[in-house]
Simulated assay, not measured.
Amino acid sequence: MITCFDIGGSAIKCAVATADGRIGDLQRVPTPARDFDAFTAAIRALIAARGPSRGVAISIAGVVDPLDGRIKCANIPCIDGRALAADLAAAFALPVWIINDADSFALAEAQAGAGRGHANVFGLILGTGVGGGLVFNGRLIGGPGGFAGEWGHGPVAAQFAGMQAIPRFPCGCGQTGCLDTVGGARGLERLHLALHQRSLDSRAIIDAWQAGDADAERTIACYIDLLSGPLAMLVNTVGASVLPVGGGLANSAPLIARLDRAVRAAILRKTDAPIIVPGQSGAEPGLIGAAWLGLEKLGGAHG
């Protein structure tokens, strides 16, 4: 048995996983985001409450440097810059494995969601921004917390889309013109404001588009144009046969279907079957992905 966590800035979610990848009942406590001792104590208490554990697997919204193990995590300041896995392993006297949330989603979808039966799966996140993770022949590429799958960064966003001039927006990574600036919910809102000088949240834009609003249609057309080319290149490069989508924008089935049609029209391999589809791994992909990571590290042994 391993203890699995999905940790965000506001809550720590915990469950145990058995050797078949199933997770048990979920427990949730607030995240002590600014006090590392309290953060460690909260996790220790959850481990103890669940009984003997062979290891701890954590899905977290952060990026771990594959060279020194230090995490970059803006929404949990007390762990930012720490070699978190090593620090927690020393505190708990247990092996600790950390996976970022996008990689966790990709692994959950490959093992228990829309990617089952596919050799190569790219888990696509369309949330506040964009992200992703690649599972190749059942194994996560880039290691837990590595940089593989971060398709949203790099100054490659088109300056024209849907016959419209598109500004090059500054990105939080320090570059200008990243796909992350236009690909997520905030990007959709940014596009709408730039095109129409009107501020709407992403849900309102999608609702207006579905209702036939011409301005919203133009925004969606630009959005699809901006994303479909890079995603087609990604599919051609990594050979993924399915791209399950997570994040808030995945809740719009018409948006995901339109993006899928545009990407399939642009890739080399022609197929009538959708390849960009809503995720199917359930309500807790972070815990499921962490569970599969831990089981992989333990060699699939019974716990």
Rank of each mutant, 00 (worst) to 15 (best):
R198Y: 00
E150Q: 13
R203A: 12
V96N: 10
A49I: 12
A194D: 06
R198P: 06
D260H: 09
G187A: 05
R168N: 11
A194M: 01
T176N: 05
I220L: 02
V63W: 09
A148R: 04
R70V: 09
I288V: 15
R82C: 06
G303F: 08
A214R: 14
G247L: 06
G184M: 02
S53Y: 11
P254L: 02
T3N: 10
C173W: 14
Q111F: 02
D87S: 13
G8Q: 08
E217D: 15
S199H: 11
V96M: 06
G21L: 14
D201L: 09
S252Q: 10
A45T: 12
Q280I: 08
E217T: 15
P285E: 07
N251P: 00
L298M: 15
T237M: 15
N75M: 14
R116L: 13
L293W: 02
L124M: 12
S104F: 10
L188M: 08
A93T: 13
K297Q: 15
A38D: 05
A38S: 01
A49E: 14
D25K: 06
I76V: 11
L134H: 12
R190L: 11
H196S: 05
A57E: 05
A93F: 09
F105K: 00
A232F: 04
R261W: 03
S10I: 01
E284G: 03
V156Y: 14
I288N: 04
A253V: 13
A161T: 01
Q27W: 05
A15D: 02
I47M: 05
I79H: 04
P274N: 10
A194K: 09
L298D: 13
G62Q: 09
L231H: 09
L231M: 14
R28G: 08
I60G: 03
V135K: 02
I7F: 08
E150V: 05
G248K: 14
D80R: 07
A161R: 06
I7M: 08
S241L: 00
Q111R: 15
G299N: 00
G154Y: 12
A216V: 13
A262S: 10
G55Q: 06
D20P: 04
A214G: 00
A148P: 02
D260M: 07
G183W: 10
R264A: 00
V29G: 06
A57Q: 12
G183L: 12
L231D: 10
G299P: 02
C73G: 10
P32H: 00
L298H: 13
T219F: 11
V277G: 01
A108P: 09
L188P: 07
C14F: 04
F39P: 01
D101P: 06
H196T: 04
A102R: 10
N251E: 14
R203H: 04
D87H: 06
A266N: 13
L46C: 08
L226M: 15
G123D: 07
L293K: 03
R190P: 00
G55S: 04
R50M: 14
G138L: 13
R264W: 03
I275N: 00
D6R: 05
D101R: 00
I79P: 08
R34F: 06
I60Q: 09
